[in-house]
């Protein structure tokens, strides 16, 4: 599974595009909005982990999960879900490790989304 994940896309580009029904402007605006919001979203999670505030961790991870879901970014969504469950007391995993994995996935996601934006511009 882990071998596969390394080669897997950070988001399902086809489904994402089909869900927007050719609304290119909305796609660009949504991605741009995501890029703007991402530092605050990750920072909220990081702060909650640092302050060991489980309620804040649950809310921040849930919000991020809802945002990345727009891009059908399953790896990021899964990791955000894990953090949300840790915050809810339902999952007993090291949240810092999961957060580091999430940061990697979000980095891949932003790269791939940036590529998509660039392709659209070229086109």
């Amino acid at each position: 599974m882990s071998d596969f994940r390394q080669t897997k896309a950070a988001f399902d580009r086809d489904i994402f595009l089909s869900n927007f029904h050719g609304m290119d402007d909305l796609i660009s605006e949504t991605i741009s909005s995501f890029f703007t919001a991402l530092p605050d979203l990750t920072s909220a999670i990081e702060t909650a982990i640092r302050e060991k505030n489980l309620a804040d961790l649950e809310l921040a991870a849930h919000t991020l999960k809802g945002v990345v879901a727009n891009f059908y970014a399953e790896p990021s969504k899964l990791l955000a879900w894990k953090l949300e469950q840790i915050g809810h007391g339902q999952l007993n995993e090291d949240c810092e490790i999961v957060f580091r994995q999430l940061q990697v996935e979000l980095s891949r996601l932003t790269n791939e989304l940036q590529n998509l934006v660039n392709e659209t511009k070229v086109a």
């Binding site: 605006e29 949504t30 909005s33 995501f34 703007t36 919001a37 809802g66 727009n70």
Partner: peptide, 16 residues
């Protein structure tokens, strides 16, 4: 909706 991104998507789809 508190997320700006989600607001954009919802409003965009509704406008469509």
């Amino acid at each position: 909706e508190d997320s700006r991104t989600n607001q954009l998507v919802a409003v965009g789809f509704l406008q469509k």
